[in-house]
Nucleic acid binder design. Structure first.
Lengths: 244, 244
DNA sequence: GCAAAAGTGTTCGGTGTACACCCATGC
DNA sequence: GCATGGGTGTACACCGAACACTTTTGC
């Protein structure tokens, strides 16, 4: 009845708290996510998002970063909270509330694990999002398909009005490489000339390093670093995907 | 080490899971939040967001809706997940992970509680957001100031590209009333003529009821209902707040 | 009549879009 | 030369900002 009593923390219901991570990167011109092949029931042999219990003395973000480092060895990549998933029954063993995080890492990413009981691999996200594709494992364990989709949606949306795309690029990158990130994540074609004007014209968004590169062929291109401006106003408009 | 072992749910760390709710409404041309005066330690006599434990058999959203109904008697308002706050030490008694929800309710809202041990009241959010104002309780209990600020930020942002503003309006409303929501939540002045053209010109955003009203004085205005289109593209641009 | 709010029409400037065109490299 | 990608210039359409103007009520 009273709010005070319900806050007595000595008799809280038994609920486990975990983190799950949607780690995205770009491999071979495709958006890919890190997935773990489960070695035990439930959902044995299914794929699942990497994750684990939150330890008593670490923040939620620290738990996500720790799990990421355990699986990939990588640190310091972009990491943001995505949402929390806690429906009763989402884990058949007990009530588990999972705080999902979205992480992005530039390519080429580390190749991970292998001969362990649980092996991690990069999988193109298209097979898990587009239900019309009859790919091998079209569903993930637990509610992880939903979490993965939410993560991809978040990444796609934030490209429009933030500098998030640079999280897919190495420290120094060309405008063309940045544009390719947008094209791959959104699944559209962008006009290279207008895109160039847009991102170089937004003051503070890109910082020229002064260096040039000729990787990728063609005329040498300027190298840029991420600038201080992380909000893109006006946003980069996402064309409707090229359908049918 | 292995991901499988860390998922064994029989030995999860003891963490309590709660929901906290940022319930916003508009009172007397100001954005206001529902706050609870705490009757017990810690933070006795401080204000806090309404909330409570998640019960074993309810979803997170259901827990938020239940707490809301307990405090206000209201049901069916807009309710969305805001984020999860779980830093160690945010509650001095034990480790508590709290899933925050954002709720919006049209005015005039119910007057709540009063003579109980815990009393609920509506407070203008300005005093908790603008640190230059020396209002009475400039800080909330726990990390609730941060949560409240995040909730207000979320509401402000979503007005731009969604129909969220209608959640502050009764079922039927005029274009002028909708505009006043934007002006109050954003703290700006909008051009009534351009706003009118914008919202009535976006197909599916507003549905005319056919009725007219003259409440508010002046020429009678059409009454509208929320239409099926909940995404606003192009968005309503938020002018930079009228400062200095 | 006057005030107040609802709507409509119009002008102007900025910006996204499409595309022609030139530049600099590797082969 | 030719292909490839980098980068600039330009014309057009569209849209938001500003604001003049008309409409319809209450007092």
């Amino acid at each position: 009845m009273s709010g005070t009593e319900t806050y007595d923390p000595s008799k809280y219901p038994p609920i486990a708290v975990t983190v799950d991570i949607v780690l995205l990167t770009i491999i071979q011109d495709s958006l890919a996510a890190l997935l773990i092949r489960r070695g035990a029931e439930p959902f044995k042999d299914s794929y699942a998002l990497p994750g684990g219990f939150v330890q008593p003395d670490e923040t939620l973000a620290a738990a996500a970063a720790r799990e990421l480092e355990e699986e990939t060895g990588a640190r310091g990549m972009h990491l943001e909270q995505l949402g929390t998933y806690g429906d009763p029954g989402r884990d058949p063993r007990m009530r588990v509330v999972s705080v999902a995080y979205l992480a992005l890492i530039p390519n080429p990413p580390e190749v991970v694990g292998g001969s362990d009981a649980t092996s991690a691999e990069w999988s193109p996200v298209a097979s898990f999002l587009d239900s019309t594709l009859p790919e091998t494992p079209s569903l993930l364990a637990f509610d992880h398909s939903r979490i993965l989709r939410d993560g991809v949606d978040r990444a796609r949306g934030k490209l429009e009005y933030t500098g998030l795309a640079t999280a897919f690029c190495p420290d120094e990158f060309t405008v063309g490489e940045l544009r390719r990130v947008y094209e791959i994540v959104w699944g559209v074609d962008l006009d290279a000339r207008n895109f160039h004007r847009k991102v170089t014209g937004t003051l503070g968004f890109l910082e020229p390093t002064g260096e040039m590169t000729t990787r990728g062929g063609g005329r040498p291109a300027q190298l840029f670093r991420q600038g201080p401006t992380q909000s893109l106003n006006p946003p980069i408009l996402r064309p409707s995907p090229t359908v049918i």
